[in-house]
Design a protein around this nucleic acid. Structure first.
Lengths: 216, 216
DNA sequence: CGCCAGTCATACTGACCAGTCTAGTTTGGT
DNA sequence: ACCAAACTAGACTGGTCAGTATGACTGGCG
């Protein structure tokens, strides 16, 4: 099977390719890799199976393409960097905003389902799980650690190991809702008020453990 | 299809049943629900397919039985309750021991693979995921919250909401390694030294945020 | 010994499905 | 207008697999 090179997105071929990716995304998210049916994907995309196989070569390759595309798209939403704070009060606000934004962006039904899918297919597609790990939590923690290092230099934070501190903070607000969503489904996702509570509590605990001269 | 009632475990039938469960456990963990092959399970159990269908009725039912059995077994290992502490120093030790034990017991390749499996099959078997949630993190947090309430009554802890405090503590040591294991596989599991570090850091952060009159 | 419930190996059915093939149609560039 | 590339519907192949059917074997018990 000869796989055609990717066409420009404006062309007719390119548009068809996008429709296939969109349809495949739906179907894979709904049914998983083995449960997904190529005929259903073709019908939903309004495209013949031939076209799919011409563009992607195989079910596996389509799956990898679809999941990778979903992660790239998610990446773009997560990337935002507000100005870093200069005072204790500004830092508290900064941390709260950061946590709240991460919660809002990451805890969507699509991303949670993507996560379930990738975890379930770890055995078959370990490289996809690795990419999700690196682009998700690892990247978030790395970026946060760099911020914390600068905050420590300013004397606003006390953290001998910035990566450990960033890991602490990240999971203080993320762990509980993500775990719930993984096992309870979309019904377990937090409301906006929940997210604010989570962010606030995470900031409180984090600062209690990483601020110089603090009295609880 | 008539499903036979469960036989006493000592009998010949009972032993065969156990061998089926053991074999099915292996195969489901390795291949997932759809990927698992009933013929392979039969061969591994040294049993004919007929016997499997007589005892369990269907692939779905076997899967539910197997996963439930795995969770019951895991439960027994997790349940241990050392004496509750009476002083600040004893509490620190207690929390460390608790965290370290939870890490040691929960972060095994089998339990992590079970978790991946259940998460991946959330769409098909939501009730299994719910059971895992209730018997796993929810139960751990509930038990911990009760302990924290008593510790607060003794004046050792400061936590207006014991459940929030228990959630904080639980995920402070669990979140990072569990997330790594989910996405990086068994190679991402922490070493014994890692677990001790995780437990120690979690206790430090937790106590900084939940102890009366504490100076960081 | 003879009974019979449980088990065995094996073959089969019917459904599903990834991927291919065919022959006719549309599209887009020149 | 013309042609080549891309696309279409739909049939087809080959393989897999859940679940059933068959007929023979075995072991415990009266």
């Amino acid at each position: 099977m000869q796989v055609e090179p990717r066409k420009a997105p404006g062309s007719n071929s390119g548009r068809k390719r996008l429709r296939v990716v969109a349809a495949a995304t739906e179907v894979f998210l709904k049914s998983g890799f083995l449960g997904a049916n190529m005929d259903e994907i073709a019908v939903r995309a309004g495209v013949s199976k031939q076209t799919i196989y011409k563009n992607f070569g195989s079910k596996e390759a389509l799956f990898v393409d679809v999941v990778t595309a979903m992660m790239v798209e998610a990446d773009q939403k997560v990337h935002t960097a507000p100005a870093e704070p200069d005072s204790t009060e500004a830092m508290e606000r900064y941390l709260f905003e950061y946590a709240y934004r991460q919660l809002s962006v990451a805890l969507t039904p699509e991303l949670m389902q993507l996560r379930r899918l990738v975890i379930g297919e770890l055995g078959r597609f370990p490289e996809l799980a690795r990419i999700l790990y690196e682009r998700g939590p690892e990247r978030a923690i790395t970026v946060l650690a760099a911020v914390f290092k600068r905050l420590e230099a300013k004397g606003l934070l006390l953290c001998p190991d910035a990566t450990v501190a960033a890991t602490n903070f990240n999971w203080l607000f993320m762990a509980h809702p993500v775990n719930r969503a993984m096992l309870l489904g979309d019904a377990g996702l937090p409301s906006d008020a929940d997210m604010q509570r989570l962010a606030k509590e995470a900031v409180r605990v984090f600062l209690a453990a990483h601020t110089p001269n603090r009295i609880a």
